[in-house]
Simulated scan of single mutants.
Amino acid sequence: MPELHWQKSSYSQEASACIYVAATSTGAILLRESDEPEVALTIGPGQLGALIAILRP
């Protein structure tokens, strides 16, 4: 399994409350929180776009 390249969200301001995102070779996107990095949510690109649209102020 290839190593994932996790990127911190530019919206994460506090070191203890960060969201990280990584893309897999299959096109899936993984999301995880800094306080529980062993747990990741797997979503598709369209789902991520919809989530961002809902959360964006």
Rank of each mutant, 00 (worst) to 15 (best):
I52C: 00
A22H: 06
S12K: 12
I52D: 00
P45Y: 03
P45Q: 09
H5C: 11
A17P: 03
A53I: 00
S25F: 12
L41D: 06
T42W: 01
E38V: 11
S25Y: 05
L48Y: 00
I54F: 08
S25M: 06
M1E: 10
G27C: 08
T42A: 03
L31C: 07
E3V: 13
I54T: 11
E38R: 12
L30W: 02
I29Y: 03
I54L: 13
W6P: 05
S25H: 04
V39M: 04
S16D: 12
C18R: 10
S10C: 15
Y20H: 14
S10V: 15
L30T: 04
Q13I: 05
P57A: 02
H5I: 14
E38S: 14
S16F: 09
A15Y: 10
I54M: 04
D35S: 10
E33N: 11
S9M: 07
G46P: 00
T26H: 15
P37A: 06
G49P: 01
V39E: 04
P2T: 10
E38Q: 14
S9C: 11
E14W: 05
E33V: 09
R56K: 13
W6A: 08
Q13F: 14
E14S: 15
S12M: 10
L4G: 01
E38H: 07
Q13Y: 15
R56H: 04
I29P: 04
I54Y: 05
A40H: 11
A22S: 15
S10M: 13
E36R: 13
A22L: 08
I54K: 03
L51H: 00
T42S: 15
R56M: 02
W6G: 09
A50H: 02
S34I: 09
P2F: 03
A23S: 12
L30Q: 13
L30I: 01
A23G: 04
A28P: 01
D35Y: 14
E33W: 06
G46E: 06
D35A: 07
S16W: 08
E33S: 14
I19Y: 07
P57H: 05
W6Y: 13
V21L: 13
M1N: 14
P2A: 13
Q7E: 07
L55I: 02
L4V: 05
D35E: 11
A28N: 11
P37M: 06
A17S: 15
T24W: 05
G44T: 12
M1H: 11
G27V: 09
E14L: 14
A23D: 13
Y11S: 10
S16T: 05
H5F: 14
E38L: 08
S25I: 11
G44D: 08
I43D: 00
E3L: 13
S12C: 09
R56S: 06
L41E: 07
Q7Y: 09
Q7K: 11
D35P: 01
T24M: 15
I54D: 07
L30F: 10
E33T: 08
S16E: 07
K8L: 12
S25V: 12
S9G: 10
L48R: 02
L30N: 03
P37C: 08
M1L: 14
Q7L: 07
T42D: 01
A53T: 02
L31E: 01
P45S: 13
Q7H: 14
E3R: 12
V39Q: 10
I19D: 05
Q7T: 03
L55T: 01
L4W: 01
A23C: 12
G46I: 02
S34D: 10
G46K: 05
